[in-house]
């Protein structure tokens, strides 16, 4: 088993942390995992992305050109990764930040209004966890519970009070994505 996920968005949308949460959950459930950010000059205010590879044997390349899974938190990321996704793959799109629908018909594109859902929960910064929750509907290797446990185990003590809202964001994202017909 090997699954690759690219998470992309603006700096400040929690792209890198969203990937780390998946990496922690994968590690804690005994899987092999790599997390690699793009660390070029684009980090300064532009787009940010990271690639997470989850496998059950030694991982070769930590980077992948055509991932089966991706999260696009803004329009530039949708523009870039819609075309790169492997056929049959699933793309989670933050509907709050895009003004167009999907162009490809050979992939599953799931639009989730991450910003609005995060604001309903009461913390707009949780938009990344909403997207991660939505992604889990297409990533059977990790359950909502796995990700919740990873957050609990690895979130710094000073942020632990945020756990319930993080759980809610994950759940809302998952449920929203589940309701969308494939």
């Amino acid at each position: 088993m090997q699954k690759e996920i690219i998470i992309a968005g603006f700096g400040g949308q929690g792209v890198l942390f969203a990937g780390q949460v998946l990496a922690y959950a994968a590690m804690d459930t005994g899987k092999i995992v790599t997390w690699i950010p793009s660390y070029g000059p684009e980090m300064r205010g532009g787009t940010a992305n990271c690639t997470v590879v989850i496998a059950d044997e030694e991982i070769g390349s930590p980077l992948v050109k055509h991932p089966p899974l991706a999260i696009a938190l803004n329009l530039p990321s949708l523009d870039k990764y819609e075309g790169l996704l492997a056929p049959g793959g699933t793309l989670i799109v933050n509907q709050s930040m895009v003004d167009r629908g999907a162009k490809r018909t050979d992939i599953h594109v799931i639009f989730v209004p991450c910003n609005e859902i995060a604001e309903e929960i009461g913390d707009k910064k949780l938009l990344n966890m909403v997207a991660v929750g939505a992604l889990l509907t297409a990533l059977p290797e990790l359950t909502l519970k796995d990700v919740e446990k990873a957050l609990e185990a690895h979130l710094p003590e000073r942020h632990k009070h945020l756990l319930p809202k993080n759980y809610e964001a994950l759940k809302r994202g998952y449920e929203t994505a589940q309701k969308i017909p494939a």
Binding site: A23, I32, V33, T34, W35, I36, P37, Y39, P62
Partner: peptide, 10 residues
Amino acid sequence: DGSIGQMMEP
């Protein structure tokens, strides 16, 4: 190389 320097792994 920089990718191993920046990469996270268990």
